[in-house]
Amino acid sequence: MPQTTIHLDATIPPELAGKRLDAVLARLFPDYSRSRIQQWIEAGWVRVDDVVPRIRDKATEGAMVVVRACLDEPGDDAPQDLPLDIVHEDDSLIVIHKPAGLVVHPAAGHPRGTLVNALLHHAPELAHLPRAGIVHRLDKETSGLLVVARTLEAHTDLVRQLQARTVGREYLALVQGEMVAGGTVDEPIGRHPVDRKRMAVVGGGRPAITHYRVEGRLEGFTLLRVSLETGRTHQIRVHMAHLRHPIVGDPVYGGRLRLPAGLSDTAIDTLQGFRRQALHATRLTLVHPGQGDTVCWEASIPPDMADLLTCLHGG
Rank of each mutant, 00 (worst) to 15 (best):
L8Q: 13
P14H: 04
P14N: 03
R20W: 03
A26K: 15
Q39H: 10
I41P: 05
I41N: 05
V46L: 03
R47N: 05
V51M: 05
V52S: 08
P53F: 11
I55P: 05
D57F: 13
E61N: 09
A63Q: 13
R68C: 11
R68L: 13
A69L: 07
D72S: 08
E73S: 14
E73R: 15
E73T: 14
G75C: 01
G75I: 05
Q80M: 07
D85L: 05
D85F: 02
V87P: 00
H88G: 06
H88C: 02
D90Y: 02
D90E: 00
D90W: 04
D91G: 04
S92W: 03
A100R: 15
L102R: 11
L102Q: 06
A107R: 15
A108N: 06
G109A: 09
R112F: 11
R112D: 14
G113H: 13
T114E: 05
L115W: 03
H121F: 12
H121P: 05
E125V: 13
A127T: 12
A127E: 09
P130A: 04
V135T: 12
L138E: 13
E141A: 09
T142I: 09
G144C: 09
L145C: 12
L145T: 15
R150P: 04
L158M: 15
L158G: 07
V159G: 00
Q161G: 11
R165G: 05
T166L: 02
V167M: 07
L172C: 04
L172G: 05
G177C: 00
E178A: 09
G182H: 13
G183L: 01
V185L: 09
G204W: 11
G205M: 07
V214Q: 06
V214W: 08
E215F: 05
E219N: 10
E219Q: 10
G220A: 09
G220L: 03
F221D: 02
T222F: 03
E229A: 06
Q235K: 13
V238R: 00
L243C: 11
R244Y: 00
P246D: 03
G249P: 02
V252R: 05
P260K: 07
A261G: 11
D265W: 10
A267I: 12
T270M: 03
L271R: 04
G273K: 05
G273R: 11
Q277L: 00
L279Q: 09
T282S: 14
R283G: 07
P289F: 01
Q291C: 09
D293F: 09
T294G: 10
V295L: 08
C296Y: 04
D307E: 15
G314D: 14
G314Q: 15
G315K: 08
